[in-house]
């Protein structure tokens, strides 16, 4: 579903080149639930934004659902984002001026879907996250957990094949986080591929596979024991 070969991302200024990702390799199979962990600044979010076609990369190859995406133009990338990818952000990223219904409608509008189908999908997604009664509420009128569930409903409504989640429980208390995680697991059971960036070892443990990123590269914790302490320390720090 998602395959990166020797991918690199370089931020260049006049005086310095900074590698956010270097010789980055990952292969996520269809239907997998992968947790991506790593310390702050390791390149987790850069990986996620490149995976989500929100950012271009400097070198290497990236195949998404079998399509090599490096040469796609903005329209094609936007279409893939709209039809195949769902995003869940740490900060929810709901549009404050739109109510819950209209927020969930955003990706469906860009897909050019008919009104009746949009409505059906929105109501189904809201029911799935348990917020059917809050369709006309604005984000400011909801708790953090509810906002994140709206964000999940927004991702769900588009029936994405790949769900990218960036610290989905980072801004939630334990109880709310548990509810959100259950929803994500539910989506996974429905057949979606999930890539979740997290600092939380407990959350990472719920995934089928963990990928650890250090200094812009995927490392195998079993083969690189020096990173055990680093990772454990980071996990402790964020617990």
């Amino acid at each position: 579903m998602l395959k990166m070969n020797h991918l690199s991302k370089v931020y260049r200024t006049e005086v310095v080149e900074t590698y956010a990702l270097r010789d980055f390799n990952i292969d996520v199979k269809e239907g997998e639930f992968v947790a991506v962990t790593g310390p702050s600044g390791s390149g987790k979010t850069t990986f996620l934004t490149i995976a989500g076609l929100l950012e271009t990369f400097s070198g290497g190859e990236y195949y998404l659902d079998g399509i090599e995406v490096s040469n796609l133009n903005d329209n094609a990338r936007s279409k893939i984002r709209n039809e195949k990818i769902g995003f869940i952000f740490q900060a929810f990223n709901l549009i404050p001026d739109l109510n819950v219904y209209d927020n969930i409608e955003v990706p469906l509008r860009y897909r050019g879907m008919k009104t009746a189908e949009r409505k059906q999908r929105i109501m189904d997604a809201l029911e799935r996250v348990g917020l059917s009664s809050r369709a006309r509420h604005y984000p400011a009128e909801l708790s953090g957990g509810q906002q994140q569930r709206v964000a999940i409903a927004r991702a769900l409504a588009g029936s994405p094949r790949l769900l990218l989640a960036d610290e989905p429980t980072g801004n939630l208390d334990t109880q709310m986080a548990r509810g959100v995680l259950e929803l994500i697991e539910d989506i996974h059971r429905g057949g979606a591929t999930i890539v979740m960036v997290t600092h939380d070892p407990e959350l990472a443990a719920r995934a089928q596979r963990n990928v650890h990123i250090i200094d812009g590269q995927v490392v195998d914790l079993a083969e690189e024991p020096r990173f055990h302490a680093h990772a454990a320390e980071a996990a402790h720090e964020y617990r």
Binding site: L54, S78, K79, R81, N82, F87, V106, P107, Y110, R154
Partner: peptide, 15 residues
Amino acid sequence: GEIGVRRALGASRAA
């Protein structure tokens, strides 16, 4: 911020 969200959700630059 809103434009970023819309772009992430599938809005092209043209949109």
